[in-house]
Write a protein that binds this DNA or RNA. Structure first.
Length: 321
DNA sequence: AAGACGAAAGTGGTTGA
DNA sequence: TCAACAACTTTCGTCTT
């Protein structure tokens, strides 16, 4: 892997944190998300000839990818040259097989072509990293092969596959976001998502509220400190078993809200609620639980004092100017 | 006046008989 | 298939800053 960015353009610090799954480079010093679409310049070694001839790997041909409708590789039954070696019986068989192969593959491929175009559209709308898109395409391909699309709209299965892929890569998008991007009802996506993952035996960990923090925090323009405070709170909340059974977005939102208060970067419940896609009431409920169980009230006062002192210093500086 | 808070009723989904 | 249930939402009135 090779990265072209060596220094943070914001603060020119060189302590860059690279998160491959999320496709992000984050500056540890100032929290800036520098790049959310990385180029994977790594080499990909793959066996092209399964049998006979040379062993060892060669780098040739297009990289295999599931986002191409036939994974970048076409399948044909036999080649013309083979015909000379067959008697008439086998020759008939050969034609029959090729005909079927053609029929089956064209039906599936036509579907895949359409579906993958849709998948790319939605994925780019949501600015998802390539790795997630790949995973989603793979899931969709398997779903088609298992005949799971029958009776469901292609678009909804695509959305379901993307949702599953996001979860697996720990870059969760909410059902709402997916719904907006794909014009499919939220519950429909949820349904196909559950169905597909169950049928394909894909195990998904329950999504972690912490995964949402970074995204929410950046759309609220909060400090990295506040952000890590929120993650801290989240950790404690998990210890107190405040998180199970609750919607992860609500918890993330509440933690962020509290953290913002503590660091004097107040955001209204409304603002936080909007970016998290929950209501103020939910934030209030979670927030109340957090205060109760974590003894945050006292700590919050302390932190706020610190914050005020800082502000005071800033003000006097300004006053001198 | 805006934001925070809380109560009450409604919604959509899960679970277990 | 139905009822009970928990989480979350909507709505609205009241309190606080």
């Amino acid at each position: 892997m090779q990265y072209f960015i060596k220094k943070c353009p914001e603060c020119s610090g060189d302590d860059l944190f690279i998160n491959r799954d999320k496709g992000e480079i984050i500056c540890r010093a100032c929290g800036l998300v520098i790049e959310d679409k990385m180029v994977d310049a790594g080499q990909e070694w793959r066996e092209f000839e399964a049998e006979g001839g040379e062993t060892g790997r060669r780098r040739s041909g297009a990289p295999m990818t599931y986002t191409q409708f036939d994974q970048g590789l076409g399948t044909e039954v036999g080649q013309k040259a083979d015909l000379f070696n067959l008697d008439s019986k086998d020759r008939n068989k050969f034609f029959r097989l090729r005909k079927w192969q053609y029929r089956i593959s064209t039906a599936i491929e036509r579907n895949l072509k359409l579906a993958l175009a849709e998948l790319k559209r939605v994925s780019s709308f949501l600015k998802l990293p390539k790795s997630v898109e790949e995973e989603a395409a793979m899931i969709y391909t398997q779903a088609v092969q298992r005949g799971l699309v029958r009776g469901r709209s292609m678009e909804s299965v695509v959305a379901g596959a993307l949702y599953a892929a996001c979860r697996r890569h720990e870059v969760p998008r909410t059902l709402d976001e997916l719904s907006e991007a794909s014009n499919i009802e939220k519950k429909e996506i949820g349904r196909t998502y559950r169905f597909v993952t169950r049928e394909l035996g894909i195990s998904i960990l329950p999504s972690n509220p912490a995964d949402y923090i970074a995204r929410f925090a950046s759309s609220l323009k909060l400090n990295p400190e506040t952000q890590s405070k929120a993650v801290e709170i989240l950790d404690e909340a998990q210890h107190e078993e405040l998180t199970s059974g609750r919607g992860p977005t609500g918890i993330a939102a509440a933690a962020l809200y509290v953290a913002a208060l503590m660091h004097g970067e107040k955001r209204t419940q409304r603002e936080v609620a909007d970016v998290a896609g929950v209501t103020e009431v939910t934030i209030r409920n979670r927030y109340k639980e957090l205060l109760d169980k974590l003894d945050l009230e006292r700590r919050m006062k302390e932190e706020r004092k610190k914050g005020r002192r800082k502000k005071l210093v800033v003000n006097t500086k300004k006053g001198r100017r």
